[in-house]
Amino acid sequence: MILFTGGGAIANEFCKYFDCKIISIRNMNNDEIESWISKAHTIIHNSALINSTNLHELLSCNFILTKNIVDLCYKINPSIKFINISSMSILNQYENYNSLSLMSSYALSKYFAEVYCINHPLINSISVRFSTIFYNNQEKDGISKLIFDSKKGNEILIYNDGSAKRDIIPIRIAVEYLSKLCHTNFEKKIINIVSGSETSFKDISLILKNNNPLLKIKSEKCTTNDVPSTFSINDITKLGRINFNLESEIVKYFNSIS
């Protein structure tokens, strides 16, 4: 059994295509957790607190909880595959760890969790970082919000003429990679799941303009944090790259909005 430790968009999308079970591990005691671990061959640890800036709370939910689960896996089922959903927020522009002093509280909590997992004696543990996921849900990410607003005829707002770039991966592709990872012996302890190509918000707004010629695009000047947008495709090549066309994915979501 493939077990997700928390709900959320990735787990729900995964369940649409692949056999798995979602539990809410945050509210369980160790006996309950051990019981689930003993039934699973793969654990995808996606339970995480995102919407907080409180370091204590973030460390407790994202690091201490992860540590506890990894330790229990090692005790109960040491050959289990443990996939820790990490975060790109811990990286700098060069795909290296960012300086701790520059990390947000959330990034710090995910950093400690990742470092703990990759150094743990649990043999089949791997940390996964996704680039910017395009969720097809206007409440989940900025790209979907832009598409939703453009379909609804609302003015869309971009910053600095949309010069900021992202490596965007549709959620369907993200979970397909995750499924491959569940069924492959990946040799590394960390994998970056990315598209391998940069897309600017200006590119996205032009795609939207093509689909809605009346679309009004407003640009504002703004100081933004640099987000890594160029990643090596070596990891996904070793997993087996999945072809997709971002423009088609955007148009598909645009057309699906009533």
């Binding site: 492959t184 090549t237 070793k238 997993l239 087996g240 790259r241 999945i242 072809n243």
Partner: peptide, 22 residues
């Protein structure tokens, strides 16, 4: 193995890799 895992990339440019499933 690496070719098998990436067969679809080759397919998309018109090349069939004569390799079995992973």
């Amino acid at each position: 193995m690496i070719l098998s895992l990436n067969r679809e990339l080759f397919k998309s440019i018109g090349t069939t890799v004569v390799v079995s499933d992973p």
